[in-house]
Design a protein around this nucleic acid. Sequence first.
DNA 1: TTAGGGATAGTG
DNA 2: CACTATCCCTAA
Length: 446
Amino acid sequence: MEVFDNWVAEFFIRRQHNPRVLPTKLISALQLGDSSDCLKLKISSVLRDISNSLIRGAIDEGTLDLLEVLEKLLLQQHSLLMESHKSAYCWTAAECTLRFMWPLIASDGFFTEALERIWTKRIGVLKERGSDLVSRDLLKWETDLKKALEDPELYQRIRETNIRYTAITFLTQLLKEQWALLGISSLESVVQRRFLKRKADNVEDDIVDKRGNTNAAAECTRRLESDTIDNANEPRGESGDGNGNNRENDNDVEGVGCLVNEKHASEEEQTVGAQEQFYEPSLDKGDKTVARELKDYLLEIQGQIDPSTRQREEPNNAIDHSVNVTPPPTRLNRTGTGGQDHNEAPQQDNVNEKGSGSQGTWSGRVRPRLPTPVPLNVSPLKKGGLAKSHVRRPKKFWTHEEVEALREGVKEYGKSWKDIKNGNPAVFAERTEVDLKDKWRNLVGG
DNA sequence: TTAGGGATAGTG
DNA sequence: CACTATCCCTAA
């Protein structure tokens, strides 16, 4: 596979420019080899799939598949498995089982089936191959769940816990860490270099030249290629400026790091003509220009290689719009008339449908404004990175179970709240380590 | 991650 | 207002 194709694919997957194409499908279509670059590409696509399923709110056994695939890929790369990966797997598995616990008692066949399918078969396979995904927590869950089959009280307790939240938290953390490990994409680093170079040369006209050039795609393809070949064997910033798709703390982005950041960049430009009070003062002009340029290139390239995409209805919030350029002087046909909507491929995938106001067909390099993405809404348990969650978690009194478990925990681990929580994940599913600490404080009357 | 201070809400 | 249980923020 061409280096260039590889890079473009990587970029699209990272940026999710084309969410209508499932990354894993894209990857299999490309028929990658096993080189290290391809490995990273595959990892990216799996991460993107996981991310998509999180955005859709679909945490299911497909997510488990993805996590297992990710493990294998990481293994090929000789990477160690991260804690977040194990935890994400463990809690996702629990969540998948929990959804079959809706009957009040375990007698119903669904729960038994789920236990068999997920814990006996699926996880049995993991055990056989000695997977690191089989963590202590996972085994603990396994015994708890199997015990719950006999013990209605335990069944009840597990049934009522909010496992989903924990699963989402770990999945999010896993994504964050893995994206960070992947570093910035090749294409981005190339474009950044281009930009810096050009900035040095002070040749801004170049950009202007490109506009209106019908052959632009071919043109920039050529340029990119010629520019990138010499950097072909440069390693990606392994974790150097690990600003992966970090959603929260990237006030210190440097260089193109911000490109990889979805939210902030998008809000920056999204606000054109709308409310301006979204934050992110830390984006530096240079970066924005780089990002804008890159996006221009890629959209044009995309238009060439995938003509059907250009005239399909714009998707909505699942898409990334990091760098939305203000409408250029050319006309922007987003005037309700939407001239060219034939070819309505009925492939809506699963993008949700609330962004109905967002369509606007676009031709050439003119892009419509897209709706602001809905931030991944992890429950108020977590301090939200974006919408300052002034929302307090509802107060929930401690049950006798919890208090007892806490007492036991302190006896066993001392004041290692984290260990206590991990030692009894089922009971403490809805308590944070800080909660344990606070509760202990008031138990001992401090 | 943990400890400690403080905010918030319920009760009397 | 005082007191309690819980939740939140942040320094170290």
